[in-house]
Amino acid sequence: MPTPPPTGPLVTRDSLAAQLRQLGVEPGEILLVHSSLRALGWVNGGAVAVVQGLLDVLGPAGTLVVPTQSADLSDPALWSRPPVPPQWWDRIRATMPPYDPLITPSRGVGVIPETVRTWPGALRSAHPHTSFAALGPHVRSPLAKLEKLGARALLLGAGYDACTSFHLAEYRIPAPLVPVGRPAPGGGWQTVTEVSISSDRFDELGHDFERDRPVVRGKAGAADVRLFPVADAVAYAERWLPLHRPREE
């Protein structure tokens, strides 16, 4: 059977930039982007064109931020997609390369964040599991500081289950602490205690957030787009989560 032609729509650097401007993305702002390249349609230039389009809209005074998570640097005993044999666990722990912001690839967040991570001038934060990469004047600002600086979040074909602003709220409410294993910076294996985070029920949280707070909604290519202040999402989630997803410490 012949390969069917792409269904489109055809998305280009310029068409994406134009649609984002129409939605209200502004030059000079700080934009935290969660994205799905596939959701956009047929993008001429792929992830590179998407990043170029975002940077075109933001301009030299704007800052583009993306999640560059690397949750695979974790205890193999917890892996499920796919699992590995138990007899491998000790050897994996002993030989897993430690996190290096320059070379550790992102995982599970799509090709657009990985493109930003490797972009000339990008800087990446130091957390071995939940790092961010950024381009622009505020590249050194952590997520909480971006909230105070008036950053906005853009869901570009991604759902609320990917919304890291909701995760920031989890750190501010009572939540269980869990041991987390990962390769130590100097070699070997370390176990640390961190807040347990989960995207469970984030779709419901996002639905209620849109109902109660002003969220810009629209399209870019074939993708559904949501645009909203990070601070609004964090504050709403801080109230919503204890009521709808209570968790014992």
Rank of each mutant, 00 (worst) to 15 (best):
107 R>C: 07
189 W>E: 07
244 H>D: 04
122 A>N: 09
14 D>R: 13
127 H>Q: 05
107 R>S: 11
183 P>H: 04
122 A>K: 08
188 G>S: 12
147 E>H: 04
110 G>V: 03
50 V>T: 10
41 G>N: 02
140 R>E: 10
25 V>T: 09
135 L>R: 05
193 T>R: 15
147 E>I: 08
84 V>Q: 06
194 E>P: 02
184 A>E: 04
137 P>W: 02
152 R>G: 05
28 G>D: 07
41 G>W: 05
18 A>P: 00
89 W>L: 00
41 G>A: 09
157 G>E: 10
35 S>Q: 09
62 G>P: 10
198 S>C: 09
140 R>P: 00
60 P>Q: 11
247 R>Y: 00
79 W>P: 11
86 P>C: 03
172 R>S: 05
19 Q>S: 15
170 E>K: 06
15 S>H: 09
59 G>L: 06
171 Y>M: 14
174 P>I: 11
188 G>E: 14
78 L>W: 08
142 P>F: 13
38 R>C: 00
237 A>N: 12
181 G>W: 14
213 R>E: 12
83 P>E: 10
12 T>Q: 01
97 P>Y: 02
21 R>Q: 15
106 S>D: 09
182 R>A: 07
17 A>M: 03
49 A>Y: 07
52 Q>P: 01
172 R>D: 12
206 G>S: 09
56 D>C: 01
19 Q>K: 02
224 D>W: 10
125 S>F: 08
150 G>Y: 02
194 E>I: 03
61 A>G: 11
156 L>G: 07
218 G>A: 12
22 Q>V: 14
5 P>T: 00
109 V>T: 14
154 L>Q: 05
217 R>M: 12
180 V>T: 10
97 P>I: 09
136 G>F: 06
80 S>I: 06
131 S>D: 08
92 I>S: 04
226 R>I: 03
143 L>I: 14
1 M>W: 01
73 L>H: 06
129 H>N: 11
12 T>D: 03
211 R>D: 05
138 H>Y: 11
61 A>V: 00
69 Q>E: 02
129 H>G: 11
16 L>V: 06
244 H>F: 10
204 E>G: 09
89 W>H: 15
151 A>G: 15
110 G>P: 08
243 L>H: 05
170 E>C: 09
28 G>F: 13
65 V>D: 09
45 G>V: 03
132 F>G: 05
181 G>E: 10
150 G>P: 08
175 A>V: 13
129 H>D: 05
42 W>V: 00
70 S>G: 03
145 K>Q: 14
169 A>G: 04
240 W>C: 10
10 L>F: 01
146 L>H: 14
13 R>G: 00
12 T>A: 02
4 P>Y: 08
241 L>M: 14
208 D>L: 08
99 Y>L: 01
27 P>K: 04
67 P>E: 13
169 A>M: 06
17 A>Y: 03
142 P>S: 09
109 V>P: 07
7 T>D: 03
53 G>F: 08
229 P>Q: 04
199 S>T: 13
53 G>A: 06
199 S>L: 01
105 P>R: 12
241 L>T: 13
172 R>Q: 15
197 I>N: 06
1 M>A: 13
152 R>Q: 05
91 R>D: 15
58 L>H: 07
174 P>T: 09
49 A>I: 01
168 L>R: 10
149 L>A: 10
230 V>D: 05
182 R>L: 14
77 A>P: 00
115 T>F: 00
178 V>M: 12
147 E>M: 11
157 G>R: 03
46 G>N: 05
117 R>Y: 01
217 R>F: 05
12 T>H: 04
82 P>V: 15
